[in-house]
């Protein structure tokens, strides 16, 4: 039965996964993520790689994770941010407008310059917390329950105390979906 297979059969080894140190700027994380996400094939970015990047501290312990949405929330908060980000941007614009200097507001700044400025922030200030990890000897049913119970799309995989890989929702998808083709 496919679901009795173990996590270690499906995981992506850590060496194949993008990682970044928590004290580095976001721009470095983006670079590392792009390298893994894009396999340059004939000059085109073939989206074969992983869509998130793990964050390690200086002792190489896993402390967080960054995905596309989180990164965009930081780069373009006025578009991709949540309600509080957008209210904050409005409040700041109101402050400049009331002084008659709305032309100085960041939203009037060139898009590119804003994005570059926003990417300077340290990874550890914006990364997401890890919600749930799994052991490589655990079976896939447990992985499924954990993943959907915690509403995550990747689960870091541990062997004893060591981080050995990542289990992704896409891998679990095929395992379950393939049942229909049997």
């Amino acid at each position: 039965m496919p679901l009795t297979r173990k996590v270690k059969d499906l995981l992506v080894p850590i060496r194949d996964y993008a990682v970044v140190n928590e004290d580095r700027p976001l721009s470095e994380a983006i670079n590392a993520l792009r390298k893994v996400y894009c396999q340059i094939e004939m000059g085109k970015c073939t989206e074969a790689g992983h869509r998130n990047i793990l964050v390690l501290n200086s002792q190489n312990k896993l402390v967080g994770i960054l995905d596309f949405r989180t990164i965009l929330r930081v780069l373009i908060p006025e578009i991709a941010g949540g309600l509080s980000d957008r209210l904050q941007a409005l409040g700041v614009l109101a402050a400049f407008a009331e002084a008659g200097t709305e032309e100085l507001d960041e939203s009037r700044m060139s898009f590119n310059a804003r994005v570059i400025k926003n990417s300077d922030i340290k990874v550890k200030q914006v990364m997401l917390k890890i919600r749930g990890t799994i052991r490589e000897e655990d079976d896939l049913l447990k992985a499924l329950n954990l993943m959907y119970g915690n509403k995550v799309t990747v689960l870091p995989v541990y062997k004893n105390e060591e981080l050995v890989g990542v289990l992704r929702e896409s891998d679990l998808f095929l395992t379950v979906a393939d049942i229909t083709t049997k």
Partner: peptide, 14 residues
């Protein structure tokens, strides 16, 4: 008004 704008202005280092 100042409290509402404050966090954004500080975070953006303006």
């Amino acid at each position: 008004g100042a409290l509402a704008a404050g966090p954004g202005l500080l975070k953006m280092n303006l």
